[in-house]
Design a binder for these strands. Sequence first.
DNA 1: GGGATAATAGCACGACCGTTCGTTTTTGCA
DNA 2: TGCAAAAACGAACGGTCGTGCTATTATCCC
Lengths: 213, 213
Amino acid sequence: MNKGMRTRKDIVGQALATATNVGLENVTLGNLAADLNISKSGLFAHFKSKEALQLAVLEEAIERFVELVVRPALLAPRGEPRLRALFDRWMGWMEADRDAGNGGNGARCIFMALSQEYDDRPGDVRDAVVTSQRDWRDAIARAAKISIEERHFRKGVDVDQVAFEFVGIGMTYQQTRKLLGDPKAKQRALVALDAVIERSRAPKKKRVVKMRK
Amino acid sequence: MNKGMRTRKDIVGQALATATNVGLENVTLGNLAADLNISKSGLFAHFKSKEALQLAVLEEAIERFVELVVRPALLAPRGEPRLRALFDRWMGWMEADRDAGNGGNGARCIFMALSQEYDDRPGDVRDAVVTSQRDWRDAIARAAKISIEERHFRKGVDVDQVAFEFVGIGMTYQQTRKLLGDPKAKQRALVALDAVIERSRAPKKKRVVKMRK
DNA sequence: GGGATAATAGCACGACCGTTCGTTTTTGCA
DNA sequence: TGCAAAAACGAACGGTCGTGCTATTATCCC
């Protein structure tokens, strides 16, 4: 059970790279096999169906996302810094040019594409996409909750609301950068995130001084 | 030149409805013809290529968007109310269940899907998508600019930043509602929009009173 | 090192894709 | 009403899709 697992990893890796560029539904077994210089049927034998391949690709994407975005961000100090780290890493993920030769504005975020591809296409893939997005939002909300505990954020801040807006900023960032090609996208995203954080911040003692002035 | 134009409209209309549900790239001539009870070749004769059909669909979508979202919103009073009207109408557009029988959470916003489908698929369709998104953001930014003129917003507010965040809220709203099925999506969207507006607002005289307190 | 087993290849299938073409039906004006 | 033009049709094309088979090749444990 060694060689098989190895090629399987290769297949999933290549499939993920392709899916990142053209969408998961547009990855075809023929092209995939050609990219890897193996036969279509040999490739197919590793998965009993195309859907199984798609699920494997999604799983791999999640694994990498956790590895490259979530886990490193957890090394940042609890609270606001960690929340910012999550966002920074996420932007890095979206910018990452995982297919260096395409000359474009970097890869799409595969999860964002999947959200659209499967938002009303029932099936196991959709369910997995839903779960992944819930998990992602939970991770953000958890960081926000810790921000409250650390007194960075006001008590009573709606952490799910923070996650909601956090995700929105990332989405518009991606469209602004990738589709519209606006170089100011990143700066705008950071400004927007600052605003969300500022609004959630715990009141400073300084404010009392200000009021007396 | 009458009958032809009529069926052409029917085709584009049906294609738009289907594209709204499954994505533009997944609309096939065969299914489309079957839906309309006409022959595939008869349908094809109206457009010289599939891409031409896709462009016609996009054009129709833009037309309807202007008709149902932009134009009615322009009837709202200049400034902040108009900006809010744009958002309300946009949310209505996204909620609209244009295929009433699907039992889902309403249609996707076709433009959001197109942004993902074509963000790195060069061609005339992509160019048209880019233009439509730029126009949409311009419309938002214009409403924000008028908000400054009307003294609803502070002088110096970055209206493109407002459009950037506005769009992001709509995107996360759609995902939250459609993919995640969260009933609180709308409320969250309105809270987020309020925050963007509040941050842009012109200082009130009241604040002086507050400071003296 | 040989032999059971796993991995890969080759080939064919039915279905559907966009597109073409020649024919038939329908339309709408003279 | 008649007839040219427009519109719709039916069949077929070369391709590609995902998916089954069977046969061959490579792997790996004893």
